[in-house]
Amino acid sequence: MENSYFVGWGTLALINAGLAQGKNRSGLNWFLLSLLLGPLATFILVLVEKRG
């Protein structure tokens, strides 16, 4: 059970990195931030505007 928690958290971090790159933001920075904040980072990333 505990392993699936870590796999899900890591998968979410990868998804956030891809989403960040789609918004012209640093995928690595958002990946690392997502490892710390998890779903909260996803919420923040959805709210931020795309860089021009």
Results as ranks from 00 to 15, higher is better:
Q21N: 13
F31S: 07
K23I: 10
E49S: 14
R51A: 08
F6R: 15
G52E: 14
E2P: 09
A17N: 12
L14A: 07
N16D: 03
P39Q: 14
L28C: 04
I44H: 05
Y5W: 09
V48R: 13
N24S: 11
E49F: 15
S34L: 05
V48L: 10
L40S: 04
E49G: 13
S4E: 12
L19A: 05
F43L: 02
G52L: 09
T11A: 12
T42V: 02
F43I: 01
G38V: 00
G27S: 04
R51I: 05
T42S: 08
I15R: 11
R51G: 09
F43R: 01
F31M: 13
S26I: 08
L32M: 07
L35H: 11
L33C: 06
I15V: 08
N16M: 06
L19W: 11
R51L: 08
S34E: 02
S26C: 15
V48F: 08
N29Q: 13
A13R: 00
S34P: 15
V46T: 07
N24F: 14
V46L: 12
N29S: 12
R51N: 13
S26L: 11
N3D: 13
A17W: 14
W30H: 04
V7A: 08
A41T: 02
V7L: 10
S4Q: 14
L32A: 05
T11K: 14
E2T: 07
G27W: 02
I44N: 01
L32R: 01
